[in-house]
Each structure stands twice: as structure tokens, then as C-alpha cells.
């Protein structure tokens, strides 16, 4: 295998993980920007929905696409419930409280999953079971191409809505200042609700993408949640696209590091690199300064 095709192989493989990370990072940043909550339970809720899908496929023999539709509906219902029952009841002052509430939600869903779906791990099939495409000596499965493409398409649609539609403007207004947005007639509660639903759907899509590579268990999304949070740190919390860029970087770096450097310590080296980068640019790649108003 030539040097170039190895590089291409690494890049293609990284793009798939990058897309999963990017979807999760986007879901976290959407919630963070609109309802000022760092949503630590995003990964756990996505894991729960993925478990639902695997359960439907394995126990009721539903086709995967139908199970995915069900999973998306469940994710939307869960997000709505969380927004109505919990997030709306916390007043604007207790940002710390909301952060801790999402920690409580992690425990709820990690506890619920084995109670409902049993303690056995489940498997989720790929959308396209087999077939590889080879480009210049590098090969990539059709399923990975589908994942990369659908991830990019989903994000493209979201960014188009954010940038060019009226509702996107409402989201951006809420993200920039909720009180002012409400005074200007933006229905901020609706915006927040939609943000939670969109985030839930992004999470379940990310879960379905990554699940065939491993098994569906309670720890399925934990590393992805961590990578997505780091992507938000790396890309900065002040824009919607910063974390997405950060996510692709975090998806790619370990693969290059493990090939060209050490395979055992690649993840740890990446964490160190991110830390060093933050020492130089504390607010991330696209970061603007956190401004605290008195």
C-alpha cells in the first residue's frame, strides 16, 4: 500500500467517526446555546434511544429504517418531556442547578435501560450490510459512505435553517440573548423546545451510526459524549459551527497519531495536545471571549 493510499484510508476512516462526533457536538452546542445548559445526559439519552431501536429490530423483527423512525419519535418525545417537566421549571438563575439536573438524568437513563431492555448487550445491523468501495488503493464500506454523507447532509440542512430561515434567526436571537429575544417577540420557549428535539434526533442518528461498529450497551455513547464535549471546548462554545470543526479534528487526530506515532498512547497524546492548544487559545478555534455581565 502506497503512502498516499494509507493516508487516504486513515482519512476516510476518520471521517466516519468525525461525523458521529460532529452530530453529537452539534446537539450539545444547540442545547447549550439556547437553554444555557451543558447537557451531560445527551449521550445517555441517545444510548437509550439506540437501545430502543436495537430492541425493536431484534425482538420484533422490525426493518431497520422503521425502527429508526420509531427511535426518532421516541427521542423527540423524551426531549419534549425533559424540556416540559424539568428544564422549564428551573428558573433562569440556576444555571448550576440545570447542569446537575442533567447529571441526574444520566443516572435515570442508565438505570432504566437494563430494566426495560434486559441486561444483555444487543447488536444493531448496518444499513448497507456489505460492499466496499476502493479509491486509489484505499477501501471504504458503502455503509461508512452513507454515514458520512447523511451526517454532512443533516448538518448542511441544519446550518441552512439556522442561517437562512426565519426560525433559524429566532434560534440565533435566543442563543445570543434570551431575554432580549423574548422582548422582540421571539417565542423563546418554542425555540428551546425545538432545540431539545433536534438535539435528541441528532443524538439517536449518531447512536445508530456508531452502534454496528460495537455492541449496544449502556456505555455505548460515553466516549462519544466525551469527544463531543471536547469538540465544544476545542471549537469554542460561542458559535454553532466551531464544535463541528472541533469534532472532525478530534475524529481524525487519534488515527493519524496512532499510525504515525504511538498506537497505545494516541488518545492520551491527543488530550495533551488539546490542553496545550487551550493554553495558547483558551476560547477555542473560533472562540470569542466569555463576557460576564454584572
Amino acid at each position: 500500500m502506497s503512502e498516499f493510499s494509507t493516508f487516504l484510508q486513515l482519512t476516510l476512516r476518520s471521517l466516519e467517526t468525525g461525523s458521529v462526533y460532529a452530530l453529537m457536538a452539534l446537539s450539545i452546542i444547540i442545547i447549550f446555546r439556547t437553554s444555557l445548559t451543558l447537557h451531560f445526559a445527551q449521550g445517555t439519552m441517545a444510548m437509550f434511544c439506540t437501545f430502543c431501536i436495537a430492541f425493536l429490530v431484534n425482538s420484533y423483527n422490525l426493518p431497520l429504517w422503521l425502527a429508526l423512525v420509531c427511535g426518532i419519535i421516541i427521542a423527540a418525545i423524551m426531549a419534549t418531556l425533559v424540556d416540559f417537566l424539568v428544564i422549564r421549571r428551573t428558573n433562569a438563575a440556576s444555571v448550576d442547578g440545570r447542569k446537575i439536573i442533567t447529571l441526574g438524568l444520566i443516572m435515570v437513563f442508565i438505570g432504566l435501560a437494563p430494566m426495560i431492555f434486559g441486561s444483555n448487550v444487543q447488536n444493531l445491523p448496518r444499513f448497507i450490510p456489505r460492499g466496499d468501495l476502493s479509491i486509489a488503493g484505499a477501501s471504504i464500506s458503502y455503509n461508512a459512505i452513507l454515514n458520512i454523507a447523511s451526517g454532512l447532509a443533516l448538518m448542511g440542512v441544519l446550518f441552512f435553517i439556522l442561517q437562512y430561515t426565519k426560525f433559524g434567526l429566532a434560534i440565533r436571537a435566543t442563543a445570543s440573548n434570551e431575554v432580549t429575544a423574548r422582548l422582540m417577540g421571539v417565542q423563546t420557549k418554542l425555540v428551546t423546545l425545538v432545540a431539545w428535539i433536534v438535539a435528541g434526533i441528532l443524538g439517536v442518528v449518531a447512536g445508530v451510526m456508531i452502534a454496528p461498529a460495537t455492541t449496544v450497551n449502556v456505555g455505548l455513547m460515553a466516549p462519544i459524549q466525551l469527544a463531543a464535549l471536547l469538540a465544544c471546548v476545542l471549537g469554542g462554545f460561542q458559535t454553532f459551527y466551531g464544535p463541528v470543526i472541533g469534532a472532525y479534528i478530534i475524529g481524525m487526530l487519534p488515527n493519524y497519531l496512532s499510525y504515525y506515532g504511538s498506537s497505545v498512547w494516541s488518545i492520551q497524546i491527543m488530550y495533551l495536545l488539546i490542553l496545550l492548544f487551550l493554553l495558547i487559545r483558551p476560547n477555542g478555534i473560533i472562540g470569542k471571549k466569555f463576557i460576564k455581565k454584572v
Binding site: I100, I101, I106, M107, G111, A113, P114, M115, S119
Partner: peptide, 22 residues
């Protein structure tokens, strides 16, 4: 016999305490 029940109860307690009895 349910495996996850302590987690669920603790998690619900966190949410309920913050909402109603901080």
C-alpha cells in the same frame, strides 16, 4: 431484583430535590 433501580431512584431524587427542595 431490578438491576438499575438504585440509579433511577438516585437520579430522580437529584432532579426532584433541585426542582422542589434545593
Amino acid at each position: 431484583d431490578m438491576a438499575g433501580i438504585p440509579y433511577v431512584i438516585t437520579g430522580v431524587l437529584i432532579v426532584v430535590m433541585i426542582l422542589f427542595y434545593p
